[in-house]
Amino acid sequence: MNIVSDSVPLQANMYYSDGEHAVMVQQHTRVNVAREMPKDHIIWSLCCFLYFNPCCLGLAALICSVKARDRKLLGDIEAARKHGSTAQTLNIISTVFFCIFILIMVIVVAVLFTQFVKIMNMINDGRNYDGYDRGGYSG
């Protein structure tokens, strides 16, 4: 974990004079802020790679995630952040493609099911596709 120190002035410059000398006093406080280590999104990339890999986006995301993890271990935080961000973007695109694919498949299955039910009802009613009664001999 990296610690960053920043000096922040609490008040404006204050001048004191003791008659002979003017003294400037400026108060500061030190704030220690812990930076987050960049995320490599390796699990998400594995899921995108294994379960749905449109246009090899899951593979590209997995490669960027591994690069981000390697850079993080080497201490190159900026490169790790860049590769992690790229992996996240590729994972988002892959996940959106997957959701659209699932939605299209649900719609196709629903339409095919309703067509199948309609055909089965027509067969049970004794009609063929042209609408004529083919039930049998009426004599």
Rank of each mutant, 00 (worst) to 15 (best):
A87M: 02
Y132R: 06
I107R: 01
S65A: 15
M24Q: 07
Y132N: 05
I92Y: 03
G84Q: 04
A22H: 08
C56K: 04
C56S: 10
C56M: 06
Y132P: 00
H28E: 11
D6L: 13
M1R: 00
C64G: 01
H21C: 14
K118C: 09
T86C: 04
A87L: 03
R134F: 12
Y132G: 00
R71Y: 03
V25S: 11
F101Y: 12
V66Y: 05
V31T: 12
L112T: 11
V8K: 09
S7V: 10
S5V: 06
K67G: 08
K67M: 03
G136P: 02
S7Y: 12
L90Q: 00
L73R: 13
T95V: 08
V4I: 15
S17V: 10
Y16C: 10
V23K: 04
L112A: 10
A34R: 03
Y132M: 09
W44N: 01
G58R: 03
C47H: 06
L90P: 04
F97E: 15
A34H: 05
T29R: 15
H83K: 08
Y16Q: 15
I93Y: 09
G84F: 05
I3W: 01
E36K: 15
R81K: 14
G126E: 02
I102M: 12
V25R: 07
S138R: 14
V66A: 06
N124G: 11
M1V: 08
G58C: 13
L74D: 09
V108Q: 12
Y51M: 09
L103N: 07
D133P: 02
G19Y: 06
V111R: 10
N13M: 07
E20P: 00
K118Y: 02
G136Q: 08
N13R: 15
D6T: 15
L57H: 02
M37D: 14
H21F: 15
